[in-house]
């Protein structure tokens, strides 16, 4: 998987663990994703790898292609959402590995890197253990 080229440069750090790269506004501290190409104003910052679903929907019809680069014939519906990354930002992403009827606001999830249309992209997948509790 790691042999694949990223879908865009500077979008994520492969890790482990992988992390999205946001941009911190040097003046205000505000964090945005992706990091804007303006080094005078924004500095790159690793975003938390785990978060919670803030909102979600399912894309039931094939997006227009282009720009969509995923398979459309046949098309499989996919989940997307916003994920709240504590202390950083709420980021928009595809959601992988969730049953559509299990999707809910507040579910914990973690960043994964996934092959997509011949390149490496990112998504958020279910996090089974509870956030910020490691081991016993």
């Amino acid at each position: 998987m790691s042999d694949l080229a990223p879908i865009a440069p500077g979008l994520f750090d492969p890790g482990p663990p992988p992390a999205l790269i946001g941009g911190r506004d040097k003046a205000s501290g505000r964090i945005v994703f992706p990091c804007p190409p303006d080094p005078d104003r924004f500095e790159p910052v690793r975003l938390p790898s785990e978060g919670r679903i803030w909102s979600w929907t399912v894309q039931r019809f094939p997006p227009k292609s282009p720009p969509y680069a995923g398979p459309v014939d046949p098309f499989e519906p996919f989940a997307i959402g916003y994920v709240e990354l504590a202390g950083a930002a709420i980021v928009e992403s595809r959601l992988e590995g969730f049953a559509f009827d299990e999707l809910a606001v507040g579910l914990p999830c973690r960043l994964v890197l996934v092959p997509f249309a011949g390149r490496l992209s990112f998504a958020f997948a279910p996090l089974t253990e509870r956030l910020e509790e490691h081991g016993s």
């Binding site: 879908i7 865009a8 979008l11 803030w54 909102s55 979600w56 929907t57 894309q59 997006p63 282009p66 720009p67 969509y68 680069a69 995923g70 996919f78 997307i80 959402g81 916003y82 928009e92 595809r94 606001v105 997509f116 249309a117 992209s121």
Partner: peptide, 21 residues
């Protein structure tokens, strides 16, 4: 470009996401 390539460039998604929240 990646934003459209991965399937996020749809206005209907925005309405659904704002509404679900």
């Amino acid at each position: 470009d990646w934003y459209g390539e991965v399937g996020l460039m749809l206005t209907t998604q925005f309405f659904a996401l704002k509404l679900r929240r």
